[in-house]
Deep mutational scan, measured.
Amino acid sequence: NKEKKVFISLVGSRGLGCSISSGPIQKPGIFISHVKPGSLSAEVGLEIGDQIVEVNGVDFSNLDHKEAVNVLKSSRSLTISIVAAAGRE
């Protein structure tokens, strides 16, 4: 599966507009579980089932849900590497 990078700058009070969840035991990782229509996440093409592999240089493969949320909230400017639809297989 091809990795792609998206860049998101949080402007004003707009949030990311997506929710994440941890994958099942047999498929660990952090996946996008919800994308709000019209949100920044939707605008850059994030979709439900995409796996987040890295954010701002932080490897997401071994993070738990709480740590992942903290990384996503730690910066107003995010570089997110995803594997599209990895969670839909």
Score class of each variant (00 low, 15 high):
52 I>D: 01
79 T>W: 10
59 D>P: 12
80 I>Y: 04
5 K>W: 04
19 S>F: 06
18 C>I: 15
3 E>G: 11
25 I>F: 09
44 V>R: 10
39 S>Y: 00
80 I>E: 05
35 V>E: 00
29 G>I: 02
79 T>V: 09
33 S>I: 04
41 S>E: 04
80 I>V: 09
6 V>R: 05
14 R>V: 07
45 G>M: 02
77 S>L: 07
81 S>Y: 06
13 S>Q: 14
42 A>Q: 11
62 N>A: 09
35 V>T: 04
42 A>P: 00
36 K>H: 11
28 P>G: 08
51 Q>L: 03
81 S>F: 04
24 P>M: 09
36 K>M: 12
39 S>P: 03
21 S>Q: 13
89 E>H: 12
35 V>K: 03
83 V>L: 14
41 S>K: 01
80 I>R: 03
75 S>Y: 13
55 V>Q: 01
66 K>H: 15
44 V>S: 14
65 H>R: 11
29 G>D: 06
29 G>T: 01
44 V>Y: 15
3 E>S: 13
32 I>K: 01
85 A>F: 08
62 N>Y: 11
17 G>Q: 04
5 K>Q: 08
59 D>C: 09
30 I>M: 08
31 F>M: 05
45 G>A: 01
76 R>L: 09
13 S>H: 10
46 L>P: 01
19 S>C: 11
48 I>A: 15
88 R>S: 14
44 V>L: 08
14 R>G: 13
48 I>N: 09
80 I>G: 04
58 V>I: 13
76 R>S: 12
53 V>A: 11
81 S>G: 09
14 R>K: 13
35 V>Y: 01
84 A>Y: 03
66 K>F: 09
39 S>K: 01
43 E>R: 09
46 L>K: 01
40 L>F: 06
80 I>W: 00
16 L>H: 05
74 S>Y: 11
88 R>Q: 14
3 E>I: 15
3 E>T: 09
13 S>P: 12
76 R>T: 14
35 V>I: 13
16 L>K: 01
13 S>G: 15
13 S>R: 13
43 E>K: 11
78 L>W: 05
84 A>G: 12
81 S>R: 15
88 R>W: 09
38 G>F: 07
22 S>Y: 08
15 G>V: 08
62 N>T: 11
42 A>K: 07
63 L>F: 10
87 G>H: 11
3 E>K: 11
48 I>T: 12
82 I>P: 04
59 D>Y: 04
9 S>N: 10
24 P>W: 09
59 D>Q: 08
17 G>Y: 03
23 G>W: 05
35 V>L: 05
88 R>F: 12
46 L>T: 00
89 E>T: 13
28 P>Y: 04
35 V>N: 00
84 A>C: 13
81 S>E: 07
42 A>T: 05
45 G>Y: 01
85 A>L: 08
7 F>S: 15
33 S>T: 13
84 A>M: 09
4 K>N: 06
83 V>F: 09
55 V>Y: 00
5 K>Y: 03
4 K>Y: 11
29 G>P: 03
88 R>P: 12
16 L>F: 05
8 I>V: 07
43 E>N: 10
23 G>D: 11
71 V>A: 09
31 F>G: 01
30 I>N: 05
79 T>I: 07
61 S>F: 08
77 S>Y: 12
15 G>W: 07
28 P>A: 07
79 T>G: 04
84 A>I: 05
66 K>M: 12
46 L>E: 04
33 S>E: 08
84 A>T: 10
18 C>Q: 02
18 C>K: 01
50 D>N: 04
60 F>I: 06
17 G>H: 02
78 L>K: 04
31 F>V: 05
34 H>E: 14
70 N>H: 15
20 I>L: 11
54 E>A: 12
3 E>M: 14
85 A>E: 10
61 S>Y: 06
59 D>T: 08
44 V>E: 05
32 I>H: 02
82 I>G: 04
49 G>E: 03
77 S>M: 09
38 G>E: 08
9 S>F: 09
85 A>C: 10
79 T>P: 03
18 C>W: 04
59 D>E: 08
25 I>L: 12
32 I>G: 01
77 S>V: 08
41 S>Q: 02
14 R>L: 06
46 L>Q: 01
79 T>A: 13
19 S>W: 06
42 A>E: 15
5 K>G: 01
35 V>H: 00
88 R>L: 12
42 A>V: 03
45 G>E: 03
8 I>M: 15
19 S>P: 02
49 G>H: 02
32 I>W: 02
77 S>G: 07
34 H>I: 02
60 F>K: 03
6 V>G: 02
23 G>Y: 06
45 G>D: 03
38 G>W: 04
41 S>L: 04
55 V>P: 03
46 L>D: 02
19 S>T: 15
2 K>N: 08
